[in-house]
Amino acid sequence: MDVSAKITGIKYWPFLCRDLKVYNLSDLDAALSQDGSFILDLYGKKRIALSWWVSAKRTRSYPYARVYDTLSFEGKKVTVIPIIKDEGREGDRDFLQWDTISLMSLLGVYVIIGYYKNAEKSKRYAHKITNQRFDIQYIEEEINRILSYQSDALHWNLSQIEKAGEIGKTALCCYEKISRELGVEMHSKDSAEKRINELIRGKETFMQLSRELAKKAQNRESVTKQPKEKLSGIKATLTIKNYLGGYYFFTCDEVEIENETRYLIEGKHSKQSLIPSLEDIKDGLLKMILFANLKEVKIEGKEYKPIAVLKLTSDFRFSQEKLRSSQIEILKLLKEEARENNFMVRIKDRDLMEMVL
């Protein structure tokens, strides 16, 4: 099923953001090694909420959950994303996608496109690296630029795209140095340079390339049911158009049809607990931010009323009596978040709103 929609703005109040630790800018390196999200104090005058992605790929290490935790901060929200992450020949290699930056723009999050400068050799694999570290000086310079930047996150992020080719070249040079120093063979430099050259040709080329890759990934996901998802409805592609005419390609885990209403469902599943982890729930809530703000939702040209649903399932038979106190607190806050932002939460097939916690 192909679903199309528009989004003209984001209105959302998060309830599950954790309390963020405060670090000074001089301690940025330590902060990046200890926390996925934190408050950065800048010379005692201003503060920003900063998160960072381990990889450019959004399915690794819960980057959405890290971004989510910064959304309740009233000042500027910033996230650092590596343009490339190469773990070596025996590991993965991921590249930044335009759609990731587009999503951050929709959320009002300033993106710093970074690169890894240092790493350690894996003790288990001959051609794999670990503990990769950003170029801290470069990140600090970009943070200082954001402090004095007067336009919104969208315009900042577009300017970051303009520098993507240059940053990509620097990243490849750093990986060459890491490879020489550690004696670790990396993935093909030729294929990486081809991707980087696409970025150098400019913003529009990068956007087009990333959209094509996102569209292919969207099509793959729409026909593949992941083992972690316990779903029963129709899987769908979801194409969202923003007020500037940009397109974002997502998948909808499940779509249910009821008269003139379409339930757009994001599923999260746990094999080890009665409900999914807090990080999984936050990951799903980032989709709720989008789904709850959709307008003009259409299927084959016909418009329907959309209702966003976060569906939580597990391999265990659900019983409220078996919930831990920490899980009850999570569900209480989740219930408030759903009520405030007009989306549904289902646990198995039960409506969280009808549950007394």
Rank of each mutant, 00 (worst) to 15 (best):
L334P: 03
A31L: 04
V3W: 12
K76W: 00
E337I: 11
R346D: 07
Y125T: 10
S102V: 08
T261D: 08
K128F: 05
I136Y: 01
Y175K: 05
E258Y: 03
I196H: 05
T205M: 15
F318P: 03
F249I: 13
I129Q: 12
P227E: 10
G301K: 07
V22G: 00
V184H: 05
E337D: 06
L290N: 13
K169F: 03
F316A: 03
A30D: 13
T224W: 11
Q137F: 06
G165H: 09
E90W: 00
E141T: 11
L158I: 04
L172F: 02
S277H: 06
V22L: 07
K194F: 12
D35R: 08
L42R: 03
A65K: 13
K21N: 12
K189P: 02
E74R: 12
G165S: 08
R195E: 15
A126E: 15
A338D: 02
Q160H: 01
A119V: 06
F38A: 05
S148N: 08
E258H: 06
A153R: 01
I139D: 03
T130E: 15
L286R: 12
E354C: 09
I129V: 15
S37F: 06
G108Y: 11
K287I: 01
D94M: 15
K295W: 04
Q226N: 14
R124M: 12
I161A: 13
K76Y: 01
A56Q: 09
S191W: 10
N242L: 02
G75D: 11
E120L: 13
T79S: 11
T170K: 15
G44L: 05
S179V: 12
T170W: 09
I234M: 04
G202Y: 00
A308Y: 03
L20Q: 12
Q208K: 15
S151V: 02
L312H: 11
E176W: 04
E90R: 00
K121Q: 02
L290D: 06
H127Q: 12
S159K: 13
T239S: 06
S159L: 01
L334F: 11
I275A: 05
S319Y: 00
I178S: 02
I167P: 00
Y263T: 11
P306M: 00
L312I: 04
V67L: 06
S191I: 13
T313S: 10
L209R: 04
L172D: 04
N341T: 10
S51F: 00
S325I: 03
S33P: 00
I347P: 10
T100W: 05
I196R: 07
I139Q: 07
M186G: 02
E212L: 14
K335Q: 13
K322S: 05
C252L: 13
R201W: 00
D280G: 06
I307R: 07
I178A: 07
V356T: 09
T313I: 08
S51L: 07
Q132K: 11
K11L: 05
D190G: 05
V80A: 06
Y110V: 02
E193C: 05
I328R: 15
Q97R: 08
V3Q: 00
N342S: 13
S319R: 09
E321M: 14
D351W: 03
M104G: 00
D86M: 07
A171F: 12
Y23S: 04
K57T: 04
I167E: 00
H127Y: 09
G36A: 10
I347D: 12
N197I: 10
S61H: 14
K268W: 02
T261A: 09
D280R: 08
E256R: 15
K271C: 01
T239Q: 08
G168E: 01
W156H: 01
S33N: 09
